[in-house]
Amino acid sequence: MIRPLIIKATIHSITAVATGHFEVRLDSRELAAAIPGQFVHVRTPGTLRRPISFSRLDRAQGRVGILWQVVGAGTRWLSEQPAGSQLDVLGPLGHGFPAPQADRPWCLVGGGVGIPPVFAALEAWQDVVQAPITAVLGARREDLLTMGDDFRDRIDDVRITTDDGSRGGRGTVLGPLAHWRAQNPNGQVYACGPTAMLAQVAQVCQGVEHVYLALEQRMGCGMGACLACVVLAQGKHGPEWRRVCHDGPVFAAEELIW
């Protein structure tokens, strides 16, 4: 695993990909060697950096993608940076997804801005998995859905849900996921999304051996030093806090206590 660096990465392009959502391609050979599920801590005005996951990792071109939704001052500032300017990014950080197993059906579950990191996983390991691959993508409304076409370009089985039914099935990712799970008892699941969604993914997938969840938590340092970003996990001697920035953001579902 490559060690974290502070990198001044040039913005190759910045694109509005959905209402209030932007994706940037950054030129950086170092970052391109990262693992899907890892993230960068991006400098914005203010006291803290902002954690954002990789949406793509293109080793050949030495280019990575990060995709975010504008929710506050930091992400708004990011969306205003022009192509050609530089971002100060700290990364790659944390532990990403493990490589999937070749012979197990693979389900990628993304909710909202949890979609980009599972796309990075698909891009990296599509060729590794010889069994069927399914993606379940959820958004609140059609215009908030990202990366649907990227998934479609790569796999046939893409199931989309929106809260209001404006695209795909009405409801959340849990419906299609439960359906997939019933048909694929020996499958593997990689998921990212809001914490409440991930808790339910863990619930729906109980008994499935290979369920990996990429979590969010409020962060300080991003380097494992400040103990801000903890989640409760099952330790050897009972419940213990683990750091999302350093022990995660990807955890095996069975490790976590909700």
Partner: peptide
Amino acid sequence: PPRVWETESGLLNSI
């Protein structure tokens, strides 16, 4: 958690 919260020109923590 949450154990940190950014504020204007500062940071609140309750580690």
